[in-house]
């Protein structure tokens, strides 16, 4: 996180403790309520899979949202520089600059960007920056039933999120792509990470056409 001699700056991160997730979709709905996300698209979603053979069956959940990567491909690929990154790491979209070409959507390995079906520009999860700027946690973190979602400054060694990352084995999605995602998971399941596995028909994200 921080190299010797480097000045510590604020870097927000997100941690999802899957031991505590109950797959309740509160995050999916609270995001719609907080950010006025239209129907057809989700910025926060819980993928649910069933594993095993009768009678040894279990379920796994994967709450997903924008990773606000340290090395975001979407930012590099935007032809009009509508995507930019804040000093605290949150990847933003200038909705006035966006031309709706969807190049960023195609390049995002996590499939978390969407076209607004009413306004036709690209949007994504911004970790509720409008709340964070007023010292409030993102909306999905506030209401999470199991307290599975933790948000905070990963560069502050005393923060809860930094402590948890330091003391638990954590995973990120698609680490091989070197995007340096900043959503960490505790207890991530290999099967649920597989984009080819999951209940079909649950996610409708066709870009609003």
């Amino acid at each position: 996180m921080i190299r010797k001699g480097e000045k510590r700056k604020k870097r927000y991160g997100f941690l999802i403790d899957l031991r505590r997730c109950i797959g309740c979709h509160t995050c999916s709905v609270s995001c719609k309520a907080e950010n006025g996300v239209p129907l057809k698209v989700f910025r926060s979603w819980v993928k649910i899979i069933e594993k095993g053979k009768y009678p040894n069956v279990s379920r796994s959940f994967l709450p997903s949202l924008c990773n606000n990567c340290d090395s975001p491909i979407c930012l590099k690929n935007c032809p009009v520089k509508a995507t930019w990154q804040r000093n605290d790491g949150i990847v933003m979209i200038d909705e006035h600059r966006c031309i709706g070409c969807k190049y960023c959507m195609a390049s995002c390995p996590y499939d978390v960007r969407h076209i607004n079906p009413l306004k036709k520009y690209v949007q994504k999860c911004y970790w509720c920056y409008h709340r964070v700027d007023k010292e409030l946690v993102p909306a999905c973190v506030e209401v999470c039933i199991g307290r599975a979602r933790i948000f905070g400054d990963i560069n502050d060694p005393n923060s809860e999120i930094a402590q948890l990352i330091a003391t638990n084995p954590v995973q990120v999605l698609k680490p091989e792509l070197a995007t340096e995602p900043r959503v960490y998971y505790i207890g991530l399941d290999l099967d649920v990470m597989d984009p080819m596995k999951g209940w079909k028909g649950w996610r409708h994200d066709d870009g609003g056409e």
Binding site: H130, R131, K134, L136, V137, G152, S159, E160, Q163
Partner: peptide
């Protein structure tokens, strides 16, 4: 959850407030 190790950190507020996205 996890003992009070992070008590010195400046954490964000958990709830009880909400801001407008347009006016802040």
């Amino acid at each position: 959850s996890y003992s009070g190790l992070f008590s010195e950190a400046l954490e964000l507020t958990m709830g009880g407030g909400q801001v407008s996205r347009t006016t802040g």
